[in-house]
């Protein structure tokens, strides 16, 4: 009996992803040590659209990805690719797991821990740069890169805030979030009142019919 679809591409993609993740973890020893604490856990990600499965095995050497796993699973999560992306980038994974479209089976605490470790990987470029370029140029280049990344992060936050202010306050292209929420609350309240009015008029109509009859 032939098995499922040709696994070559899926296996190749997992191999590439695993290599990239482990290279990143090699540059972030703190995250790698944290990951080692989850070494007895197996996480199953069942993606329904597009359809594929990934099993994550964290360990002392980094993280191992597999397309097939026979054995106990610590946490199993099922959902669409967009739901997994939302969880991976979420600042509050607990809220995303509760409110998002993911179905969860098993222990959620190790999964949240894994998400937080992977989301906060802080790579130290200095070690490979020093090994390649030597102590002084390696350190200086690493310092420049650190400053550039820090400036980039700051600039991105500042730009996003200023753009937000321009759209909402200066150009009035879109109402501010609080105003929109207030408006939606009013609409909701209006909807409820209309429903109440409708049932009241219905009751009056029935009473009139009773008098006439």
């Amino acid at each position: 009996m032939a098995g499922a679809a040709d696994p070559t591409l899926h296996t190749a993609a997992l191999a590439a992803l695993e290599t990239a993740l482990n290279r990143a973890l090699d540059l972030a020893p703190e995250s790698k040590n944290e990951l080692a604490q989850l070494k007895d856990c197996v996480f199953a990600l069942h993606c329904t659209a597009p359809s594929f499965e990934i099993y994550l095995h964290p360990g002392e050497q980094g993280i191992r990805l597999a397309g097939v796993h026979a054995g106990p699973i610590t946490t199993s999560v099922r959902g669409e690719a967009s739901d997994f992306t939302e969880l991976a980038t979420s600042k509050d994974p607990t809220a995303t797991l509760i409110n998002g479209g993911l179905e969860l089976e098993g222990d959620s605490a190790p999964l949240i821990e894994l998400q937080q470790i992977l989301a906060t990987v802080n790579m130290d470029w200095e070690a490979p740069l020093v090994a390649t370029l030597g102590d002084v140029p390696g350190h200086q280049l690493a310092q420049m890169l650190r400053n550039a990344f820090a400036w980039g992060r700051q600039a991105s936050v500042s730009l996003s805030r200023q753009l937000d202010e321009f759209i909402h306050e200066e150009a009035r292209l879109s109402p501010p979030r609080l105003e929109v929420e207030d408006f939606y609350r009013d609409v909701h309240e209006l909807g409820l009142r209309v429903d109440r009015l409708q049932s009241r008029t219905e009751r009056l109509r029935q009473r009139l019919q009773t008098f006439r009859g």
Binding site: P7, T8, T11, A15, A66, V68, H69, A70
Partner: peptide, 14 residues
Amino acid sequence: IHRIWKRFTIELSG
């Protein structure tokens, strides 16, 4: 590609 074939073998070995 022989590395990918062997990798899948290891996955399926359990």
